[in-house]
Every structure is written in C-alpha cells, then in structure tokens.
Design a binder for these strands. Structure first.
Lengths: 341, 341
DNA sequence: TTGAAAGCGCTAACAA
DNA sequence: TTGTTAGCGCTTTCAA
C-alpha cells in the first residue's frame, strides 16, 4: 500500500554522528550546538560544529527527536470541510497561531463523513501529534465511540461542552439572536425563516434557540425552520423551498455563509431581488460575506480569537476551562435592508 | 517555546513490550500481528496478541516506526493561501488522493509571504515527510535559494517546469485562450481586458500569452492588462480601475475565481450589470463559480486529476515526467453573455 | 567544557 | 512458528 522513500541518491543523509566525526567532537556537543543547549559549548568548538553541519548539509532527524522527546511539535486539526471558507479561515488562523509557538499543524478534512472523520481523528491521534483540535459535525455519539484521546484534545467551534474534552466555540445563540432581533426590531419584519444545517450537536441547536429567543422577545411565535446541510447546495435547495411557500417570509436567516451563497443564487434564479423582495442574513461573517451582492449582514465569528483560545487549551490542558464561549459581532451590511453610505 | 505533553494520567502508554509480556509472546510476534506480516503467526497466538492490544489499549508509536522505517507515510503540502477556494479544493483533493494510498498530509499555507513560505518548505522537509507538494507564488529565485530537497518534491499548479523538480499544472495558456476566444469569436467582442495576478513565474505568464494568442488569432492587437494580486481585493481594485477607463471594455478576463469575486462586487458597486454592461470570465472554475450571479463562465482546472498526478509524481519520483500539462475545460455559463436555458 | 553511553519504541534479520 | 537482538538518530545523565 505504501511506498517507502529512499534517502537521497548520493548516499544516506548525514547524521549527528557524521557531524561529530567531521568536527572532531562528540555527538553530545553537536546536540548542544544544534539545540543551543542545554550545556554551553566553547565558541571555537561551536564554530567547528556549525562548519561541519554546513559542509555535510546536515539536518536533524525529526522522528528520532520525537521518539526521544515524546513530543513532535505538531498539532492535528480536523475540520469537516476545508472548502467551506469558515473552516479555511479557521485553519489559516490555527496554523498561524501554532506557528507562533513553534508548532506545525497537520490538517484533516473529513468531507463531513462520519467514518472518515473517525478514522482521521484516530489516525492523527496515533501520529505523535502533541494535541488535537477537532471541529466535527458528529458530536455526541461518534465522539463517545472514539478511543479515549491519548493527547490533549479540544473541540473547536462547538457551542455545548462535551464530557472529557475542553471546548471552545462562539456564542452562536447570541449571534443568532442579534441577527434576528435586527430583522424584527430595526426592520420591523414579522416573518423570518431559519435555514439551518442538520446538526448533530445536542438539540436544540443554539442558533435555533437564539432565533426563537428573538421572536419571544417580540412576543411572537418563532418563524418556520428548514433543515438542510451546511453547504452551498443545502442553502440553495432550502431557499428554493422557502421561496415556493404560499406566503413568502420577509427574510431568511441562514446558519452559515456557505448556505447564504446558495441562497443568493436561489433568490436570483427566482427573479427576486435581495433585500427588496426578501432579506438575507447569515451566521459566520467570513470574508465571503463582504463579496456577495448585496453585501451580507452577518454575525461574525472571531476566528482568530477562537484559534488562539483553542491553542492555549491544547497546549495547557491543565488550565483549560471546560468550555469557552466567544462573543460574535453583528456586522450590518445591506442584505438585511439597511441602506449604507 | 514548546510544551512537552505528558502521556496519559494513568501512567505511560503501553508499548509493544507490554503487549508482548501480557500476551506471553515476543515483541517480534506482536509486530507481525500488528503489521500483518512479514512473518505469519498462528491463529491462537494472534488472538492472544489482539486481546492484549485491546486490554492495554495499545497503539504503536509512530515516531519509532518512522525512525526505524525511514518513512512516515506523511506528505507535506504547501499552498499560498488556503482561503482561496482553488487551493482549498486542491488541498481536499490531495488529501483524498493521499488517504487512498495510506498517506496523511500536513498542510502549510504561507499567506503568500515569501519568507514564511521558505520557512514552511524547509520545516516541512525536515519533518520526515515522505514527499512534498509545493504550490508557490514565488517561483524561481526563492525556490533556487532553498536547500536541495531531501525528499521527492513536486511543484504543483505551475505551468512551466523548473530545474530539478517534477511539476504538474494546468495548461493555463490554452485555458485562457479558450475563454478569450469565446469572447472574441462567439460574442464578437473586440475589447477585452485582462486582470492578472502579479506572477512570480517566469514571464510572460501563460494566461497572458493565451490571452494574446486569442487576439492574434483574430488579427487583433492584445487588449489591456492590469496587474494586481491573486485575491478578491486584487480583483476588486483592478476592476474598479478598468471601469474607470474612458473606454470601458466589453469584457474582463480575470485570472482567478477569487479575483472574479472581487470583480463582481466592483461591477455592482458601479451600478453596472453583468453581462449587459460588461462581461466577466475567469480562470479556475471552482465551485464558487457556480454560485456567483450571473454564474461565471470559466476555464475549469481539473483539480482532482492534478492532485492525483502530483501524488503519483511524489510517490514514484523515478518515473515522474519533468512536467505534466493537464487540459482545462471551458465551462460556459452566463457571465459571458450566453443565455442558457 | 567535553565525552561515553543508555535508552526512547519499533522492525526484521537471524537463530532456534 | 517464535524468540533474541541490533540498530534507526537523537537527547541527556553521568563521568572525566
């Protein structure tokens, strides 16, 4: 199945022993120089070692180091779908935050498939990663079915804690509330539909609760809910469905930017205009939301903060709170009906 | 700088020796069972070993295996920007193709920054990856400045070969030609502007040549070229610029979907309609292009094929051609002015 | 300040 | 069919 890769053609790569021999020192000294510690080395010797390193084009074998140290300075990140801009931005942020601390990250994108995700997590966990960040669509059961994590594992982008894991996520209930309240309060809409991904999180989904909360605050019964998946196609299909209702709502709240992308298409295909015929708002607030037309009013997740928070949690599991809620930010653009300069 | 991670609280993780002791066999036998070879083991013994593995919750130490075997079954992938849907789709494809062959992939996204990219490639290459796929914006110099790769390295998404590396990319010259020829031939446009990313590839950029080729085929001098960067903002700014010209062209050919996203926004902000006031076409053809309005006519890169081809090249460097050109596919939608059902 | 050497967990050649 | 063991490259304790 797998293809072993031979070392370079011109012979095996130089090892620490080669360098030591070349520089006329012991292997320990080479270590001290290469790692700048833990013992100090006289300047002259250090220079000879560096020259040898150069001459032999030596670079340390990470597997050996990992084996010895028990740490690989690698983190694993599992997301359901890297082509979803939210996860792409999250991956970018995690990678950046990890790099700042000297860690590399191995990414797995499961395509939202449960079995693949399980495999990914198990595999990654076995790969000497020092910690795991998992953003999964398959919360409770699948997670419980996993072998106990051998490494600090934090659940990222979840709104409810899960036994045995540290978790960080946005306060999506509040984010949803803000959006719907804006529609109901500022714009005086009375009928707003919710299009939401088929969640495997503990129900009711927080966005759905925020949605209902906003209606309650206005003394209204909650609007209709359409469940689909968290993709463009999901948003597209669901919106088509909503537009076909006898009484078209004033607005649709999409649970992700990705779904909103599909919603726009459905609206245009129906020959309708946003926001005149129907307002659209969405949860996520990735860069994509600035480039739709009209620009998308959204509750923006603080992706950088989420990445940093999650990173601190894996790297210092002892002090990681069971669950951290990050605030979202309401970004009003034009798709809700507001007319901005 | 780095935080070593301790084994599980309930003591150190089980090793192969623990399993051997528990099952009353030698470590070799455990190996044979776990790896299903290379020696065969009697069914009874194998069962005992499997029971021990289960009981001790044993999982092999990958670092040790890597050290021993000299192969990690990991590949490295470096892309300039994972939030660009093209690269996200590419990453997804590479990951999928790799998984089929038992490899995991470590992703690095450089944010298009030369220094970070150099660091990433060097770092990744040192990490016992069995091979490296690099899609870089900083072709010639930076690549030459890199230490010689210790592992098979293939350049991905490049249109010109580069000494010492296998390379795979789409035939972007042809892709560009198809698009512009469609505009000139089918639609009878005469003035088409090109918005292209600031390329670090050997000039002239193939898309620019394809663009010029199409004009030449019609006996026309090539249209105006605006150079910007390969981002939404780049496309946005460049398009604003084009729209401000005294003579607005009939169409703009954007060198990426990401730029096209920015272009749409610029067109709408200017109060113009696509394709009536100005036609838009782009190179890439990611899923994003199906969800713009109007849907984007594009030259679609065969991302899956590219991933597979590149993978074969890293995994079997001996037989990898210096450069492989993959055909693109013209996908006609509505942004060019075609009226589809 | 430097050297010798043990040992991290695994694979596979060799021996039984 | 199974056991013994060398050795992958590295870090670091202990001794000099």
């Amino acid at each position: 199945m797998t293809v072993p890769v031979r070392p370079l053609a011109h012979g095996r790569a130089a090892t620490r022993a080669d360098v030591a021999r070349y520089a006329g020192v012991s292997t320990a000294v080479v270590s001290y120089v290469v790692n700048e510690g833990p013992r100090r080395v006289s300047p002259g010797t250090a220079a000879r070692v560096r020259a040898a390193v150069q001459a032999l084009d030596y670079s340390p074998n990470v597997a050996a180091r990992t084996l010895r140290l028990g740490s690989s300075e690698m983190l694993g990140l599992v997301v359901p779908d890297i082509t979803n801009p939210f996860f792409a931005e999250l991956a970018q942020a995690v990678e950046g935050a990890a790099a700042e601390r000297g860690f590399l990250v191995t990414l797995g994108s499961s395509g939202s498939r449960v079995d693949l995700e399980r495999e990914l997590v198990t595999d990654l966990a076995g790969r000497n990663v020092d910690g795991l960040l998992v953003s999964t669509v398959l919360m409770p059961e699948a997670l419980a079915a996993l072998p106990a994590p051998r490494r600090p594992t934090v659940l990222i982008n979840v709104s409810t804690p899960f036994a045995g894991y540290a978790a960080v996520g946005s306060d999506s209930r509040r984010g949803a509330y803000d959006l719907v309240e804006h529609l109901l309060g500022t714009h005086g809409h009375t009928s707003v539909a919710l299009v939401i991904g088929e969640s495997t999180e503990r129900l009711p989904e927080p966005r759905e609760r925020g949605f209902a909360d906003a209606f309650a605050a206005h003394g209204l019964p909650p609007g209709p809910v359409v469940r689909t998946d968290f993709s463009r196609t999901g948003g597209y299909e669901a919106t088509r469905q909503v537009l076909a209702w006898r009484h078209r709502p004033d607005a649709i709240f999409l649970s992700s930017d990705q779904q909103a992308s599909g919603a726009y298409r459905a609206v245009r295909e129906a020959g309708l205009e946003c926001p005149d015929d129907i307002a659209l708002v969405a949860y996520d607030g990735t860069t994509q939301s600035e480039f739709t037309w009209p620009p998308l009013t959204s509750s923006r997740q603080q992706i950088d903060l989420m990445a940093r928070t999650a990173l601190s949690a894996v790297l210092d599991p002892a002090n990681a709170p069971a669950h951290q809620h990050l605030p979202t930010e309401l970004v009003v653009r034009r798709s809700c009906g507001c007319s901005l300069p």
